[in-house]
Write a protein that binds this DNA or RNA. Structure first.
Lengths: 141, 141
DNA sequence: ATTTATTTTAGAATTATTCTAAAATACTTG
DNA sequence: CAAGTATTTTAGAATAATTCTAAAATAAAT
């Protein structure tokens, strides 16, 4: 079932990507990388990826899904966006302002609104209205 | 043990605050409002507030802490900032960009970097470096 | 081929938060 | 004020996302 090498090329690209990220090319990692990077850019939760993997006939444990996503993230080939159901900090300062978040310490520091300019907000999709704009600047030592 | 009415004034201010937010002035709510609004602006987690309440000799259940914080938030007298341990979306687009987050649907939509200008970043505190700047614009119908 | 280091795994554990249904309390009306 | 009704609080269980554990499997190095 050769295809002129097109699949081999994609395969090689994935393997190269993992290698240059300093990751061993194990079967689960390569398989997940295919799901993640085989199409255009995408946002996906751990759970959804797990479903996709199962649907594709791959048997990969939940822990591996999480491990792999975190490894890809640490290696810089995946970005993490946190939105819902976070550990919430409640802030008595309800004026429009933003935050530094000190990783590790779990500490928040206010940034007064006009220390950041989030001008030029993009127009929101038809039928939706903006309920909030949150900027979090993450910090480490 | 009168004090010339200073405590009564603070008490009255808290009560007024709850009232005008459309909240009944129950004992637990008033007590928590004192902890939250009695000093300058603060960031606090549910757990930390619970500890403070206990330390102050108040016996308030965990559920009430959460209920109260959410009610204050809905009423607009408290702001919520989500940072750690969120339900994470992993994004294969690692270029600098931001997101719309559609509440309810739990859907993320990319905003290309230059559709928002987060100029004028504040300088980070001594000894820290910025590891990321995340803007999430929350949307509802 | 053997050794050594890294990964994967199933399942349990953890953590933040929400749910449930009953008991307590606040507001309202007579 | 007394009684009724609606709202809150509560303890404890439930849920959901994620991480941990320690053993089995696999990859890379010798």
């Amino acid at each position: 079932m050769r295809d002129g090498g097109r699949n081999d090329e994609r395969q090689a690209a994935i393997v190269a990507k993992l290698k240059s990220a300093g990751l061993r090319t194990t079967r689960p990692r390569v398989a997940l990388a295919h799901l993640l990077f085989g199409q255009g850019d995408r946002h996906i939760t751990a759970e959804a990826l797990h479903s996709e993997a199962r649907a594709a006939g791959l048997s990969i444990s939940q822990a591996t899904i999480y491990n792999t996503l975190n490894q890809f993230h640490e290696a810089g080939i995946l970005r993490e966006v946190q939105v819902e159901k976070a550990r919430s900090y409640f802030d008595t300062n309800i004026s429009d302002h933003h935050h530094f978040y000190v990783e590790g310490e779990g500490r928040l520091i206010d940034i007064e609104q006009n220390a950041i300019s989030v001008d030029k907000l993009p127009s929101s999709p038809e039928g939706f209205r903006v309920t909030g704009v949150d900027v979090v600047i993450r910090l480490t030592k």
